[in-house]
Structure formats: structure tokens, C-alpha cells
Amino acid sequence: MKLSRLLIAASAASVLALPASAAEVKKIGLAVPNLQADFFNQIKLGVEKHAKEKGIEVVVVDAKNDTNTQVSQVQDLMTQDIDAFIYIPAGAAAAAVPTRLAREAGIPVINVDRTPEGAPGDTFIAGESVESAYEVCKYIIGKAGGSGKMAIIHGQKGTTPEVDRFTGCKRAIDENQGVELVDQQWSNMWSADEGFTIAQNMLQANPDITIIFGQADGLAMGAAKAVDVANLSDKVIIGGYDGDVSALEYLAKCTGPFIATATQSTQKMGVLAVESALAVAAGEKVEERQTPNAVLTTCENAPEFVKVHP
């Protein structure tokens, strides 16, 4: 009896506390696939920093790369009455269900990095992978003298970035007759330890590889370790992608075989996501596709990115 009265009082209070206007954004839900990955963590930091300046609360959920978990978490976000939803799909399959849930709740949906097929959000913010991957591969092939045996360490097979980054790099390879693509392997987690193992196996099978492209900085860093261990540091050139903090610090030293990456403007993506959410909520028109450019980063410009991550 007493309990139920308490509960009624509590729910009444919560009704009073509801935001007066639906257009006003007080609480943003952010669903990320995996905070273990620096790339997503940077986006999260960007969102949180910018939201704090605007006085907006951010609720973050981490799916640990599992789509099912992410759907559950998005349900819980909706229960918390968020006013806007920033959605970075987890797993190889970008599930459409979270977008549908948000649509049902009538709130803005901002997709970052990946977008589910058939259920687009209000805007899609993602780096342009094809062009940037082309830039990285062109640079490392050029450093290698425009010829030699090359290997690619792919990311998780079937994901959009994996496909796009390969398309871009392949273009650079095709432009150089002297480059022969001798080995390609796929990782599951985009992680450094996978990069290490894969590169070691590649060098075992083809000791005369001189160019390696890792589709993520983690993979490239792992490959660099493997090259060091094999005592081939002065013969092999490695390129990466993403511009992780640790990779930028590595590049800034200008000593190892890993010499170039494409630094994604991850923090800027987060800022952009919050801005877009506010704009959509206010009824303004937002671009369907927004592409903060990735910047080719080498030993020369790495130090400035270490200071301030874009």
C-alpha cells in the first residue's frame, strides 16, 4: 500500500520533470560498437566534450561488438526518453532495428561511421575511406620506389570500411605496374595482436615483401612489430589508417617502418554528430551525407596531430 503510493508519487514527479518542448535537446543517447577501439572512443570523447559545452547530458552504451546487445541497449535508451540518438552500428551487419525504434519514438537519428541498409538516419557522418586509402597506399608505394611485393592486412571481412579501404588501395596498386599484390589476410578485431600474427605469417610465406598496408592503425602497428622482430625494419614500408593516438605518437618519432596513415577527424565527427542532432531537432535541413576528410599523416605532420587530435 505504502509502496504503491510512493511509486505513484515518483511517477508523478517524473511527468512534471518532462521537457517542456520536444524540440529542445536535453539528453542524447550514443550507441557505440566497442569502446576498446580508439576510433570509437575518440568519437565518444568528441560527443561528450561538445555536449558538455552545450549543457546536454549524454548516455553512452557499449555493445562490445554484438548486434543483439546493441538492440537491447537502444531499447533501454528509448526507455530513458532521450531527445536524440547517435547510432554507430555494431558488428558486420548494421542492424536497422535501432533506427526503427528511434523513428517510433520520433527523435532524430544520426548515423556515424556505418549506416544500416534500407533504414537511413537523418544524416550519415563518415570519413571518405576510398579516397584516403588511395592516398596512403600511393604514398607508401611511392616511398618504396613504385615497385615491389605488397601485402594487405584487411579489417573484419565484409564491413564497409574494409571494403572501401581495399577499393582505394587497390586503385593505387593498379596504377603502379611494378607492384605485385602477393598476400591478403583478414583480421576479426582490427587489433594490434592480430596484425602482429598475420604479418609474421605473411613474412614467413613471402620473405621478400617490401610494402604492407594495414587497414587500421592497430593492424599496422602490429605489422611494424613483426617487421622489427624479423629484422626487416630497413627493407619494409608500412601504411595504416585511422590516426589513432598511439599511431600518431609512433609516426611523430620518425624511426620505424610504419610511416604513413590517414588521420580521421574522429573528434570532429563527434562534434558534427551533436550539431546535426540539434539542427534536426530544431527542424533545420541537414546534409544527407557529411564527410569530414581524413588527412594523410606522415612523420612531418604527425607531431601537430599529437598535440591536438582533429
Binding site: 561488438n65 554484438d66 548486434t67 543483439n68 558488428g91 558486420a92 551487419a93 542492424a95 536497422a96 532495428v97
Partner: peptide, 15 residues
Amino acid sequence: VLAARLDSVQPSSGV
């Protein structure tokens, strides 16, 4: 059940 919930299937499910 999961396929229905996600409206898709992927081999990396259920790790």
C-alpha cells in the same frame, strides 16, 4: 529468435 530480432543474420553473432 535473434534473426527475427535483428532482421538480418551474420556469422559473427553469438560470440
